[in-house]
Amino acid sequence: MDALLTPFQFEFFRNGAIAAVLVGGLCGLIGVYIVLRGMSYIGHGLSHAIFGGAVVAFVLQFNFYVGAGLWGFVAALLINQTVRRTPINADAAIGVVTTASFAVGVALISRYRRFTQSFDAALFGNILGVTLTDVAVIAGVTVLAALLIFFLYKQLLFTTFDAEVAQVYGVATAWVETWFALALAAAIIASIQILGVTLIAAALVIPAITVRLLTDSFHRMVVLSAGLGALSGLLGMYLSFYIDVSSGATIVLLQALIFCFALALVSRRDASTMQR
């Protein structure tokens, strides 16, 4: 019991653990829609795009959350609109929009070298530096994104399953996609400090694909993926504390391990079904 409670004596751990649970759950929830849309790479791309926005916000001495948020939202909308209005596939659109945006950040860093170190944290995450203000922002984003998905649940489900047919049945798919882009951009910004640009994609994708292996029901997938994301956030924080390894990397490695376990379980079940 002591081993479970000891880390909570430290403020950095308390803040970090709350943030990791919220971010894990949020990424798990949003990841379901991303995986089912076949846009798994968007998390990786968008986090890089937002990195560009963060640098621009820094250079212009603008609020990080507002600057990076707007940049990410516009990038997500550009990707959606490119896919909807042109014959370009999602992966190509993500590649073009997000790498160009990332390049803006890299160019600015090379021009203004004085803040290179500040962006190490954005690239690789720095959970030890999570303040109460950060926790409040992450909690706010998580609640808003969860509310958005709660009240747009049916429209999002139909749009994700078949956007064209959803339109015929009266779903305002363009609005649904715009709101979802906003939620995705907000989730990535909230996650940057915990996981870092380089690891967000995994936190978005792994819980959703792990749960997809275990259930054929959309409703269960949404609940289980958010739960798995939150649980792996908490367990990852504990592991990271005791083995003294970067918390973002530990969370993602733990999720990858759970995925491998689920894959082995399903492969074994399928093999025994085929033998019968």
């Binding site: 399953f161 029901s217 959309f218 409703h219």
Partner: peptide, 18 residues
């Protein structure tokens, strides 16, 4: 998309005006 995790009843319910 036949790999989408959805049951027959869930598909039918999509038709209800949200």
């Amino acid at each position: 998309d036949w790999s989408f995790p959805i049951t027959a009843e869930e598909v039918a319910l999509m038709g209800i005006d949200h």
